[in-house]
Design a protein around this nucleic acid. Structure first.
Lengths: 266, 266
DNA sequence: TGCTGTTGTTTCGTTCTGCGGAACTAATGT
DNA sequence: ACATTAGTTCCGCAGAACGAAACAACAGCA
């Protein structure tokens, strides 16, 4: 019924509010790592014309999502965005349930245990624990890691309906034509692991010295897939340990969490 | 120069994008604590008409800021908001600098040490540490506490230019006509403490059994005021300890952090 | 001191987006 | 069958958002 306004593949819904989309795109253009952005840079990243950016940044600043630094003449994210993020976190009751079990496993494995969900083409940590003696990379709540090369991302792909995982993979391919063959191989291997054992591995595919195992939790209530992972230094978490010991324990953890959740919600 | 369009006190800037404002208001209407909201409830909270809400929720859902639960027929916040919040946090380098000192003080005082900034009429934690043996209330990064009755909020008021703190207090008064006299007394006392000693107290004014001391850090580069606080059980953190020992140590911590920051930025 | 490049803001006429009352649909209850 | 309540769709209208172009502010440089 709706006549496609433009022939872009991305339908611009009659039902979508463009100004809101654009404003959020402005916020999104602040990737973790770049402190300050000027209107110019934002315009470059978003492809929006200058006056539009000017209006959007004004609005966002007035509302406390951005603030303006006189010194640099640029904007940076402000507290209001954090307030939103937190409102999201406190309502994820899977965190409360999983926390002690994750902590326990982290200590047992002397590694990090994390819980993540999909966000666009990344996995986003919503909970993380390090063993008391872990020196590994510091990944905390809010951290993002790629989907295709991490165990967490691969476990997600295995748990998602085929249509969705394919759609993700297409986009990944577009963005990584060069590495695609290697990426694809890794994912096929992960599928095999998943079918045989119920979890996926990544042995140095993301960062050379990092080994990890991950498995999904598909909530009974139809909400979004959750993924648990255990991550550590390659020399510490050897393949056989992940496959024979940590992996199974991770599955066990997931079963427990899932049962607890199901029991709680009638 | 700008000609006021309407005579509302809140000027509706020629420079502001209404649709964006409204969309963000929809997100904001999810306070920490309410998991699911239907269009109806959102409409009630924001005062916007139904079709408008419908369009905004659609848009926000498409972008990953909300997601829709078939089961409940309602929306809840989704991962995209957390991704934003994290991008904000990682860029606050005051956190990196302050973290070890906060931890140290927390252990010394056997209490919690927090770092917060203003967000609307709340203080928002951007870093928090508990001593290993603390049983106190669980306040974590992202938590929000009121301005007028907490030591952290009062310290903010003392550090802000008078115009700003007055503007905040006006709004607080409007929202709490009943308690206003008591609130006002507390703040006046805090001002006196601040002038004499450099820090503010709250001895049970926010929660009966909670004592706290706080002091501001006003960055040299003109960015927003930061507040450090030390919080604990009333029976443990007695007034004299806060005034004679913890308070001064907190000021010392702040001096150190500030010097480190100033040294780093040219 | 003027010149040139860069960045952000204002202007202003146009257009299309966002609007919201009203009608419609769907689900739930009695 | 008949209210009741929640959400979506319609559709004509108004004005909000738009963006090209002009303008302003600033820095570097000769």
């Amino acid at each position: 019924m709706g006549k496609a306004k433009t022939e872009t593949g991305v339908e611009n819904d009659r039902q979508s509010v463009r100004a809101l989309e654009r404003g959020l795109e402005v916020l999104r253009s602040f990737k973790p790592g770049d402190r300050f952005l000027g209107n110019q840079e934002i315009a470059a990243r978003t492809g929006l014309p200058k006056p539009t950016i000017s209006r959007l940044t004004h609005t966002l600043t007035r509302l406390g999502y951005l603030s303006y630094s006189e010194k640099f003449g640029k904007y940076h994210l402000d507290s209001a965005v954090l307030a939103l993020g937190y409102s999201y976190l406190v309502n994820m009751d899977v965190r409360r349930v999983a926390r002690p079990l994750m902590q326990e496993l982290a200590e047992y494995a002397q590694a990090s245990v994390a819980l993540g969900v999909q966000d666009r083409l990344n996995m986003l940590y919503i909970e993380a624990y390090r063993s008391s003696a872990t020196v590994t990379l510091t990944l905390d709540v809010g951290s993002q890691i790629p989907i295709a090369t991490t165990s967490m991302g691969r476990a997600l792909l295995c748990a998602l309906p085929e249509a969705e995982s394919n759609s993700i993979l297409e986009q990944v391919q577009l963005r990584n034509e060069a590495d695609w063959p290697r990426i694809k191989t890794g994912i096929e291997q992960a599928r095999k692991d998943f079918d045989e054992r119920g979890f996926c591995l990544s042995l140095g595919d993301w960062k050379r010295d990092v080994h990890a195992v991950a498995a999904p939790l598909v909530p009974s209530d139809g909400s979004r897939v959750l993924v648990f992972s255990c991550v550590g230094a390659a020399f510490q978490l050897r393949r056989h340990m992940l496959e024979d010991d940590i992996g199974p324990r991770l599955l066990n953890l997931i079963t427990n969490v899932k049962e607890t959740l199901d029991r709680q919600h009638s």
